[in-house]
Simulated assay, not measured.
Amino acid sequence: PTQLAQGIVENAVLERASTKDIFVYKTEADLASLGYANGTWNDPRTVDGARLMIGTSSIRRIAQWKHRYPNTEVENLRGNVNTRLRKLSESNWTGAIFAAAGLERIHLRPDTSVNLDWMLPAPAQGAIMIVCREEDREAWELVRPLNHPETALCARIERDFLRALMGGCSTPISALARIEFAQVHFEGNICAPDGTELVEIRKTADINVSNELGSEAGNELLRDERVQKIIQSIRDAKS
């Protein structure tokens, strides 16, 4: 959620795991059919997307995938990790998309998987936040030493971006903040659910003046007419 419930406060954010989305494929030929070769994702315009079928239930992943491979057929994929991996193995799909952190934390990432380096993750992907009741000082003091300041800052910037765009888990909004040499590098985008339009933004700020970076990026995108059209189309679809 972009807003915690009343009386609940952020206590600590653990050091971040991988932010990557990964593609778990069935065969090397399937992977090659996506234009992946020698560890590189090649120009998607060379791919015949009509032959592709992938599994995911994430609106964000579907939107970015469709933007790159517009002719792909997407199958709904739900359930826990083991269930989704089993469904993939029993299917005739080219592959399926997972969060790297979810598979790596439980040591289930298959060898037949590659990072989707071109896909921007969900805000705070790979991060775990611990919350407590506002008045519970004992819990606060016990858990606070687990906080990883760099991860907490990046996750907050990404969630601020999501909040500024009035998004949630059903909105195809992506964001990633990284800290390098005392600077925060931010990337964010919003995509039409069918992938026809993707609007992105990149911003950099010194770490000591980066508190508003996510909000500023989101508000800047809101001034773009293309973004307003995407948001309106999402609202119309929900009504």
Results as ranks from 00 to 15, higher is better:
A192S: 15
E216A: 12
A155K: 02
P1Q: 10
T151Y: 08
D160N: 06
C154P: 09
E73S: 12
G55N: 07
V74D: 05
R86M: 10
K238Q: 14
E225V: 09
E180M: 12
L213H: 00
F98L: 07
P172V: 13
A175V: 00
R105I: 09
N147L: 09
E90C: 04
L198Q: 15
D21N: 14
N71K: 13
S215C: 03
D21Y: 14
G195N: 05
I190H: 09
A12I: 04
A12D: 02
E212P: 07
N80E: 07
L221S: 01
Q125D: 14
P123N: 13
S91K: 06
A155M: 11
T112K: 15
G55F: 08
Q6D: 14
S239M: 06
K203Q: 14
V184T: 11
W41V: 00
A100M: 01
N80A: 02
E73Y: 04
S33R: 03
S57V: 01
S58N: 12
E28A: 04
V184L: 08
D48W: 02
D194E: 12
A100H: 05
R45K: 15
F161Y: 13
S18K: 06
K20D: 15
E220V: 06
T72Y: 02
T27K: 13
R178C: 08
S113N: 13
I128N: 05
L52Y: 08
Q125F: 01
D21F: 14
L108P: 02
A99G: 08
R235I: 08
A164W: 09
S239H: 11
R60Y: 10
V209T: 14
V143L: 15
W93Y: 11
A63S: 12
E75W: 02
I59C: 02
E138G: 00
W140A: 08
I22Y: 10
R105G: 12
G35P: 09
L222H: 03
L52S: 07
I201D: 11
E73F: 05
I54N: 05
V24A: 12
V227T: 01
E141F: 11
E135T: 04
E141V: 04
L146Q: 10
G195Y: 08
H148G: 01
R223Q: 15
D136G: 06
L34H: 04
E197F: 08
R133M: 13
M166P: 00
S91D: 07
S174W: 10
I106A: 05
L222Q: 13
E216C: 10
C154Y: 06
A37R: 12
D111F: 06
C191L: 10
G168M: 00
I128G: 02
L165F: 08
L31Y: 03
V24G: 07
A237R: 10
G102T: 09
N147W: 01
L221P: 04
R163V: 08
T171F: 12
T72L: 01
V81S: 00
P70Q: 05
T40A: 01
E10N: 13
W93P: 12
W65Q: 00
A96S: 15
E150L: 06
E141C: 03
D30N: 15
G7Q: 02
Y36G: 01
L176V: 07
S18A: 13
N92F: 05
L120H: 01
E135I: 02
A205V: 03
P70S: 07
T40F: 11
G195F: 11
G95A: 04
A177M: 03
T171D: 13
N11F: 00
S89I: 11
S91Y: 09
G55K: 07
